[in-house]
């Protein structure tokens, strides 16, 4: 173990190696480490933000769904009411129409009856005249008996 020039050589080598590490090795590696740390921090933050966004979106979706359900319920309700109304209206119309038809039929019957009665009356007057003529064996002055026959016929 003798001290000699090797010591100086090792000192120089040591100094050179340290300087090289300081200039070309250490900064590059620590920079990469710091950048990665920053990237990971950003990533985590983004993930947090995304999580919050997702929560918000879910909340909003739930609200929309509720609203839609309410609207649908309201629509169905309205439709039901309207349907009932329409049925009621139809019923009313049908009743009115029926009544109208019944009234018309009644008026027709009335008219028919009146006409038949008129005809009957005429025929009765005719029959009376004919019968009277047969009985009297002569013609009857119709104008002179007009009032009498009329009175008879109107009692029918």
């Amino acid at each position: 173990m003798n001290i000699n020039l090797t010591l100086i050589g090792q000192m120089i080598a040591f100094a050179v190696f340290v300087l090289f590490t300081m200039k070309y090795v250490w900064p590059a590696i620590t920079r990469a480490l710091e950048e990665r740390a920053a990237k990971i921090a950003d990533g985590l933050e983004a993930a947090d933000r995304a999580m919050r966004d997702l929560e918000l979106a879910q909340q909003r979706a739930a609200e929309h769904l509720k609203e839609a359900k309410q609207q649908a319920a309201a629509l169905i309700d309205q439709a039901n009411r309207r349907a009932g109304q329409i049925v009621e209206e139809a019923k009313e119309q049908a009743r009115l129409e029926g009544e109208r038809l019944v009234a018309a039929a009644r008026a027709e019957i009335e008219r028919e009856v009146n006409r038949a009665r008129e005809e009957l009356r005429n025929q009765v007057a005719e029959l009376v005249y004919l019968g009277a003529e047969k009985i009297l064996e002569s013609s009857v002055d119709r104008a002179a008996n007009q009032a009498l026959v009329e009175r008879l016929a109107s009692r029918l």
Binding site: F17, F20, Y24, V25, A28, I29, A32, R36
Partner: peptide, 15 residues
């Protein structure tokens, strides 16, 4: 040592 570490330092990725 310097060669190995320099190689890593040059290729150091943040990924």
């Amino acid at each position: 040592f310097l060669w190995l570490f320099r190689r890593v330092a040059k290729r150091a990725t943040t990924g």
